[in-house]
Design a binder for these strands. Structure first.
Lengths: 174, 174
DNA sequence: ACGGAAACTTACGTGAACGTAAAGATAAAG
DNA sequence: CTTTATCTTTACGTTCACGTAAGTTTCCGT
């Protein structure tokens, strides 16, 4: 009557070991299961491999991190999911590289090829990020300039009201 | 037969003096008339004042600049038009201040009040911009780190292939 | 004065990115 | 083993941010 057994303390409910269910992942990332399924549906996320369709999706820690990264990029770059998908071939390539690097039975030629490809994708991302960053920096500069002017005017008014004339430059160091 | 009179050389077609029509503004800003009307419709842009509804909208240079700023903020901050609207009370306040500042028949008290209010709005914008900028900077840093690692690995491979062992550190300065 | 380009209003259509509901299967808990 | 919370698929609904079409009106050039 008072304990309300409907709340199981939000225990992660891990399906043995390190894998999380979609609901937990969603809570963890501040999103919803639907969104995660949707991203998988449009090919932004790889389909949970070898899952007999009907079975629950399970996410490893690395997969969760990938989803987090996807959402972060979406948020920061503000691109459509379609653009993001093409951008994320970079991530896939990098994952490929990592996978291939682990088992070193691949010839250096193939290895170099993969790495170079990944590098190209990284460069594309970097270019996009740098462009946006510089735009934002410019905006920030403009805003802080405007702010300075506003503050100067306020100080001028204050000074004129009490001291009859605006002080030379800095009076209150805030 | 060859001049094709359907193209009037894209002359701005100014309705006397400095004002532009909505189509010109749209072309200028790389958008469409519909978008501009829509922004006005949802209150993002002020309704063209004293226009007998049915008459063509005319935009002064300052109004065009405002629209440009709105679109820039939308692009850079990636917020919804609704959020942007609340954010833009800042712009309105600043416009108010500028208007009041021009005719100095307002008492310093009111003036200070307006300025302080505007300052608050600017600060809100600045906070948002700075937050995003720092996030982006972090992402950029991570990406360039990853890039470095990838390049190192590639150089390692190249060296192993031709020279049999990777050179100590810097070999090709690119 | 007038013919046509461009703008006006109104209203319905659309794609992206999910939300939500239904009906049934699965996994975790008792 | 049974309950129950969570997940499954399927499918339709929704909001945002405009696009588009239709029918009318205003403006600019000649």
């Amino acid at each position: 009557m008072s304990v309300n057994p409907t709340q199981p303390e939000a225990a992660p409910s891990a399906a043995r070991s390190d894998s999380l269910r979609i609901g937990d992942v969603a809570r963890l990332l501040g999103t919803t299961p639907r969104t995660i399924r949707y991203y998988e549906e449009i090919g932004l996320l790889p389909e949970a491999p070898a899952r007999p369709s009907g079975q629950h999706r399970l996410y490893t820690q690395t997969e969760v991190e990938r989803i987090r990264e996807v959402m972060r990029l979406k948020h920061l770059l503000g691109v459509s999911l379609e653009e993001l998908k093409t951008l994320l071939t970079a991530e896939e390539a990098r994952a490929e590289v990592r996978a291939q690097l682990r088992r070193d039975d691949v010839d250096p030629g193939r290895r170099r090829e993969l790495l170079t490809q990944a590098l190209g994708h990284i460069d594309r991302q970097l270019e996009l990020v740098r462009h946006r960053a510089s735009e934002l920096a410019k905006l920030e500069h403009e805003l802080s300039e405007t702010r300075k002017r506003a503050r100067r005017k306020i100080r001028g008014l204050d000074a004129a009201e009490e001291g009859t004339f605006p002080p030379s430059e800095e009076m209150t160091p805030l």
